[in-house]
Computed example of a mutant assay.
Amino acid sequence: MRRHDLLRVPPATWDAMLARHPDLGELPLVTGWALQGWPVIVRRRLAADASGDIPAALPLPPAYGKRRIAFAFPGDADLHALPPVSLRDAAHAAPPEWQPVIAEIIQLGEAVGVVPRVFGSLLWQHATGLSYIAAGSDLDLLWSGANHASMRTLAGELQRLDEHGAVRIDGEIEMPDGAAFNWRELALRRGGDTVLLKTMAGVELRAIDDLIRGPVA
């Protein structure tokens, strides 16, 4: 399991999880989440998580408090991995004013050979049909499989689009082992600097030169 992986949870597995976390059943939408067929997302491990558990989360929409809810499943739980959601597939759920920059980002992905994936508000609006995108929402993207030659280009072009587009672009470049860093750190720093790398186990600092010295795909 990697951060941002999506899982479908059968209702029986969901009910068993709620029995382990009974306080969650009192929150809006949570009890019927699995019955609706809505996914959950794999998150970073917390100190309270048992080593064999699968850490997951879901966010409530702004109308329900915009709360991020964390829980875990036993390692042998009946869970089904879902394919990642591409920006192209989720674009229909984005506001009209986002569409021009989305089109440019899709073209950028084609140019660098990486299909941008979504997480954040656009993912959840696409996956659930509920209203997650609000004024000030970011467009959160995950770029997996960029090689060392394209990472700088990718970060630079995202910075350009972010400065001139109608929506703030956020997100991460993911390494082959699932560790990821915010693309802004690469755009705003030079070789010799370090970036904050997020992993399933926590965070660590790594030199930019180490990240881009060789192929990462």
Rank of each mutant, 00 (worst) to 15 (best):
L7K: 05
S121C: 03
K66R: 15
V9P: 07
A50M: 04
L87V: 13
L197A: 10
A12P: 07
W33T: 14
L29F: 15
R43G: 09
V30D: 10
A179K: 01
A72M: 02
A166M: 04
L108G: 01
E26I: 01
Y64W: 14
E26Y: 06
D210W: 13
L6P: 02
E97C: 01
A146R: 09
I69L: 15
H148N: 06
A63S: 13
R2M: 10
R184Y: 09
S51W: 00
E97F: 00
L46P: 00
S121K: 08
P62F: 09
L186N: 06
L27T: 02
L18T: 04
D78V: 04
A12M: 06
P95W: 08
Y132D: 02
F119C: 15
A72F: 03
D177H: 14
A94Y: 06
P22C: 09
P62T: 11
L27M: 08
L139I: 06
L7D: 03
L154P: 00
L130Y: 15
Q159L: 13
L27Y: 04
P59K: 15
S144H: 14
P28Y: 09
L139Q: 09
R184K: 14
N182C: 13
L58T: 12
P116A: 06
P95K: 08
G165T: 00
H164W: 09
A127S: 10
D76P: 06
L87Y: 10
R67T: 12
P95L: 03
R213W: 07
K66W: 13
G145D: 14
